[in-house]
Simulated scan of single mutants.
Amino acid sequence: MTADMQKIEQDIDVIVSNWLREEKLREDDVFVIGCSTSEITGKAIGSAGSEEVADTIYKAVSKLVDRKDLRLAFQCCEHLNRALVVERDTMLDLELTEVTAVPVPNAGGSMAACAFSKMEDPVLVESIKADAGLDIGETMIGMHLKHVAVPLRFGQDTVGDARASFAVTRPKLIGGARAQYPSKES
C-alpha cells in the first residue's frame, strides 16, 4: 500500500470513528455517501476515478452498518442524475423508485460502481431522504437529506486531498412563540 493510500485509509477510519463516537446515528437510519475518488487523489472531480480508493472508502463506511445497523446509500455522479445505489430491501422497505442503470466508473462514479459490485442485492433508486450523510469532495449530497440538515464538525475534515463534510437531520421545529420543544433532541 502506498503512503497516499495509507493516509486515505487513516483519514476515513478517523471519520468513521467520529461518526460512531457522536451517537447521532440510530438503527435503520439511512446514511448517504457522496464521494469523488478523483478529488481524494488531488484531481478534478470526475477526471481520475480510483477503484482502489473506492474500495477503501467502502470497507470503512461498512463499519457503520456493522456497528449501527444502518442503511447505506451511495450517490452516483451527475451522469446518472445522482441516483443512488442501495440494497433491494431498502428500496422495498422505503418504497423508493427504482431506475434502470448499472453504475460504472465513467458513468456513476468509482464509488457507486464499487458499492454496486459489493452489495448483496443492489439496485439504483432515483432519490432518497437520508437521516445523515458524508460528502467527500463536494459531491452535493444535500438533495438526498431530509429537512432539516444540521452540519457536524469533526477534527478530521479531509480524506486524502478532498474536503469532507458531514450532516445529520432533525425534525422541523413547528409552532411559534407559544410552542414548547423538548430540551434535548432525541
Rank of each mutant, 00 (worst) to 15 (best):
S165G: 05
A179Q: 06
V85Q: 06
E27Q: 11
R178I: 15
V123I: 12
D28C: 10
A164L: 07
V85N: 07
P122W: 03
E120K: 15
A44S: 09
A132P: 01
H79T: 11
D157R: 03
D131W: 05
V32H: 08
R26Q: 12
E120D: 14
L80F: 05
D28M: 09
G137L: 12
A149V: 14
S183Y: 04
M111V: 06
D11K: 09
Q180P: 00
V14A: 09
S17Y: 03
Q75G: 05
Y58I: 12
D93S: 15
T100L: 05
A115T: 05
I174M: 12
E87N: 12
G42H: 07
L64C: 08
I8Q: 02
R163E: 14
A130G: 08
E78K: 10
V85E: 08
V104G: 00
S117Y: 01
G34K: 03
R82C: 03
A162W: 01
Q180W: 04
Q180S: 15
E27V: 09
V61L: 02
L72M: 15
M5E: 09
E98V: 06
W19A: 07
D131K: 05
V30S: 03
K118T: 10
R21G: 05
A149S: 13
D13Q: 13
A113W: 06
E120F: 07
G109N: 01
Q10W: 04
T139A: 09
E23L: 07
L20S: 01
I45S: 03
E39S: 15
V85K: 02
S38C: 11
V85Y: 06
S110P: 00
V32R: 07
K63F: 00
E126I: 11
V16G: 04
A179D: 10
M119D: 08
E23S: 13
A48Y: 07
G46I: 10
T2F: 04
V102D: 01
P182C: 01
L72F: 03
A112K: 06
Y58A: 10
G49Y: 02
L94D: 14
G160P: 01
V148P: 00
F116Y: 15
L152Q: 05
K68N: 02
L94W: 11
A107R: 10
Q180M: 15
D161S: 14
V14G: 00
W19E: 02
E52N: 13
L96W: 05
R67P: 00
A44Q: 11
T90K: 03
Y181P: 01
Y181F: 13
S165D: 11
M91P: 00
K63E: 13
T41R: 09
G137D: 07
E185H: 01
Y58R: 09
D93V: 13
D4Y: 07
E138L: 07
R67I: 07
T41F: 01
L124I: 06
D4M: 14
A164P: 00
H147S: 13
P171D: 14
R170P: 01
D93F: 13
E185A: 06
G109P: 00
S127Q: 08
